[in-house]
Design a binder for these strands. Sequence first.
DNA 1: CGAAAAATTCTTGCATACAAGAATTCACGC
DNA 2: GCGTGAATTCTTGTATGCAAGAATTTTTCG
Lengths: 244, 244
Amino acid sequence: MDSPADTTPLAAFLAQVPQPEPGRRKGALHGSTVAKLRNLIVTGALAPGAKLNERELCLQLGVSRTPVREAIKTLTQDGLLRALPNKSSIVAELDVGEIEALIDVVSTIEGLAGELAAARVSDEAVAEIGMLHYRMLLHHTRDELPGYFEANKAFHRRIVELAGNPVLLWVWELLALRVDRARYSSNLWPKRWKMAIQEHEQILAALTAGDAALASQRLSEHVRNGLSGLVAALKDKAAKPDGA
Amino acid sequence: MDSPADTTPLAAFLAQVPQPEPGRRKGALHGSTVAKLRNLIVTGALAPGAKLNERELCLQLGVSRTPVREAIKTLTQDGLLRALPNKSSIVAELDVGEIEALIDVVSTIEGLAGELAAARVSDEAVAEIGMLHYRMLLHHTRDELPGYFEANKAFHRRIVELAGNPVLLWVWELLALRVDRARYSSNLWPKRWKMAIQEHEQILAALTAGDAALASQRLSEHVRNGLSGLVAALKDKAAKPDGA
DNA sequence: CGAAAAATTCTTGCATACAAGAATTCACGC
DNA sequence: GCGTGAATTCTTGTATGCAAGAATTTTTCG
């Protein structure tokens, strides 16, 4: 227990208490808690099937149960968690079937985004998306996976935003959560970097030309290729349990 | 303070005061609270822009703030409410722009559903959907709007289910909430009943034939027609403020 | 009388207390 | 020794308490 040699027992005790963070503004806990927890799930730090103990999460995140519970509810709605009545929520399983289901939906949604975006492109928008493309290229040459990952997502997101349809963006964001989770769970990416970059170039060209049909088709195909590869990788991984 | 003739619109709608219900099972409050509140919003009992006072809702729904707050969070995520920091949440505005945005997304999603469903139809499925179609027809002949409404939704839902893609169904349900709200807000339906029924017949025929491309196109068109009409009706309504 | 500021009240955001159900442990009997 | 059941503990579901921020009213000064 309390060792007599402990020179500052009070200080030690206080250090353990997660400080209220004096400069904290009210109303920010829900959002930040959701973000933290979501990251844990999407990146796989919380494995699929893992039980979420609310009290434990409170300690880890330094907040009370209220924001934690709200975050759990939110993420359950997003499909990242599964709620069991009167029992701990668990991280949603990430079965291959769901990713296969994602393929059709996401490719269709992004296809629509490409179609709408191509019909509305401006020089400014092309420049922005082009910049994101080259940022991705840069991360590729430097072998920086996280940066590549982020730039890739920004590229797609910008196109969806460019479509100018808020409902489309909303749906895309919901789907992107699941896609990200699937991506993190496989180490496919290094193999698909080059191909993905080429496809992005083609997409960018179609957008620049304002060719809606082509942009739609290429985006749809691009998404389909990416997710299909992912499914294949996961099936492969499942076949040989321990990655050698 | 509380005048005896309290004129809150909620009070009228929720005359049935849900008492603590002794035989209540634990864990049912969140779901039921969400459902009740969602109904109030979708049907328009809570008008767009209306402020939600948590304490008042607690009294009306007969529960404490916890489930009410959780329900508010849930419905905010569904896009039915808008959260303002440190202020009352409000019912999301139902602007025509959003419904126009819905047109592209929902028609695309249902088009995909039709395509997938047509590729998987069984005799049983055709029979089920046909039954729903005729149920709708029945409600039409009887001039029963609510029943018609419900059968219409069931018809569409069954097709999406038949597509066999859980992600697609999930997205469709989220979108359907907004579509329903838009429908309730206009009294277009009596005018479109006949047309909608004819279109359903065409859809059913395409599904029966297993023609994926045709089913997709017809469903997509059908949704587009319905929502476009809705937008027109709302614009009309906005032009002449008071419906004569 | 009008407007700005101070005080009061109201409402939300977060924390915590309490109760019901589930899980675990322990005891007892066979 | 082991299975079954009672008792304890643990965990979630719900209610409530308290503080920070917003709204409203009152007060004060021009």
